[in-house]
Write a protein that binds this DNA or RNA. Structure first.
Lengths: 331, 331
DNA sequence: ATGGAAAATGCACACGTGAAAAATATTTCA
DNA sequence: TGAAATATTTTTCACGTGTGCATTTTCCAT
């Protein structure tokens, strides 16, 4: 491996000059710089990141942390996040992926190892981690879950409003017996989506019926189970809002199994707009959650924060979009 | 940040002794070691990985490379891979995720930055990258795509045999007019799955009908399109094998659209066994691809290789499993 | 006690880089 | 032409860690 010292020897200058030349330091005469850059290129010089890290106290690493990699995180969510970040992130940063639930010692999370951290947060339980990062003064952006603390950069989709729009739409189609299959207990998104559901019903002066609130955990299977229990009610709902598409697919399946046709006998609304949503039968009307956009914006903000740690924290909202397809009937 | 020198001062020894004590070097007296370890713990010492890296020429980083993050890589594939790896990987290694297609300069891929590399390979086009890694002498395991070169550690599912089993099963159900919707051109998996399809038909002395070979690219939409063209044939097939589940879902959708019922009028087989496969209507009969198992085994092998670079390379096969559900009818 | 081997520890340096301070070269101005 | 001012480069040191070799301490057999 060749180093700046090797280049210095060839160029007949000191290694410091080489370092400066290669890092765009204005103290170097233009012709010297050009000559050194040429030599460096010819010698195929590649900087040693370990050495750089040691002296600069930078790691050239961005950490992406999910609440959990195994549980409650749908595949498309994780992938869209990674895609979004890669889209914005400079090539000489590398992105490491972690699950908060599998971290043994927070001590290993320190400025030395991460220039910046993105937390794809789903639950309050991440707070311990988030505050550790903050205490360590590592530039931090929390994505996807709205924080009470306005001292932290935060990028989220406005789930609640997204749901309200969807319910408004369904109400405009004449529906009045609304049920919900809720998300995983403890997840902020579950609460928000439920609240949007409730708010919209209240705004339309529709009744909140306790039996129409079914528990779920974001997994496909839980949608199936919850739908079965809803269908077993003496008077089933005319429309069911599922807190994510995975559960909506499970729910749809339960309907097939019981010979209920969608949307004629029962309407269905999902949340997320995963790839498969447009390929269910009928195609699922759902709320598009802009995970990739959130990730992109979050990464942009993180980069700002790394450049200038005093950038004032903001709470940024990214809009959801209602995707009207075929799973809601007019009644 | 506290360093071994700080500990040395407190313990009244040299930093060398501290370094040795903390790294389990046998030259240190047991009681000295115990004392130093105690002090280190009390002082909350955390080693500086940059310095370690510099001196040890290790990075404590494993790179996971996909052919592409954006294209042709399904979400569940990426996620299952990450999960599998995390399951095996030691906590003080971090995992970075990359798309080969977005690497600008291979020069940045060097031993200094990666202790080991896992390539989730889908296409021959990855070879340039793979050989670069090999040339750099970075411990390497290639997953998912079978290589001709037996000099590289390689873990793959036996796609071909998996497909053959599935076609055998379908033949045993009385089918004889078999069609295929192929995977993305250029991907090894596409070729293997197609070959399994062909081999099985030949073994059953069934005809290979050119019109029954439809092109696809692993995306849901391409399954839809391909199925439309198959259904437009004067004499459509009685069963269609789709090279992955995503396309099978697209294909299923095309059937809905044209009022063809599955499996009564047309049978369908997928490949991968994604989460949603059991929730299609009817549930999709498919071939389970053990991505997580491949990743786990591959990671284990990579760790072996990192410990002892002379570990002889192997080609390891992980079995697929036929998941019989409801999309294939007996005729 | 004493020599000598064995065990334990310390010294000095290396890794590749960047930065402050010092040195040298060049330009400017009177 | 010479001093002051400025531009450029070099010297020296630091970052935190591990290692070969020298040094000290310990222990045992004499």
């Amino acid at each position: 491996m060749i180093t700046i010292k090797d280049i210095a020897r060839v160029a007949g200058v000191s290694h410091t000059t080489v370092s400066r030349a290669l890092n765009g330091n204005p103290l170097i005469k233009k012709e010297t710089r050009d000559r050194i850059e040429k030599i460096a290129a010819e010698m195929n010089y590649i900087p040693n990141y370990s050495a750089k890290s040691l002296v600069m106290k930078k790691s050239y690493t961005i950490g992406l942390f999910f609440s959990s990699i195994d549980q409650g995180t749908t595949a498309s969510f994780l992938v869209d996040a990674i895609k979004g970040i890669h889209h914005v992130l400079d090539e000489n940063y590398s992105l490491t992926v972690h699950g908060i639930d599998s971290i043994q010692h927070f001590d290993a999370i320190m400025p030395q190892r991460f220039d910046g951290i993105l937390v794809m947060s789903q639950s309050d339980e991440d707070n311990a981690f988030i505050y550790h990062v903050k205490k360590m003064c590592i530039p931090l952006v929390v994505l996807n879950r709205q924080l009470e603390d306005t001292g932290i950069m935060n990028v989220v989709a406005n789930d609640r409003i997204g749901v309200m729009e969807a319910i408004d739409y369904a109400a405009s189609q004449g529906h009045s017996r609304f049920a919900i299959i809720e998300g995983r207990a403890g997840f902020k998104s579950s609460i928000e989506r439920k609240q949007g559901f409730i708010d919209s019903l209240i705004a339309h002066r529709l009744p909140l019926i306790p039996e129409y609130f079914a528990a779920g955990d974001y997994a496909v299977e839980s949608g199936y189970t919850a739908m079965c229990s809803l269908l077993a009610l003496p008077e089933p709902p005319s429309i069911v809002f599922c807190a994510n598409d995975d559960m909506a697919i499970g729910a749809m399946n339960a309907c097939y199994a019981q010979g209920i046709t969608i949307p004629e006998q029962l309407s269905l609304i999902g949340f997320d707009d995963i790839v498969f949503a447009r390929y269910t039968n009928p195609a699922l009307t759902t709320i598009h959650r802009p995970v990739a956009d959130i990730s992109k914006l979050g990464t942009t903000k993180l980069i700002e924060l790394m450049k200038d740690p005093d950038t004032p924290p903001q709470q940024l909202f990214v809009n959801t979009t209602l995707m009207v397809r075929q799973s809601v009937a007019a009644v």
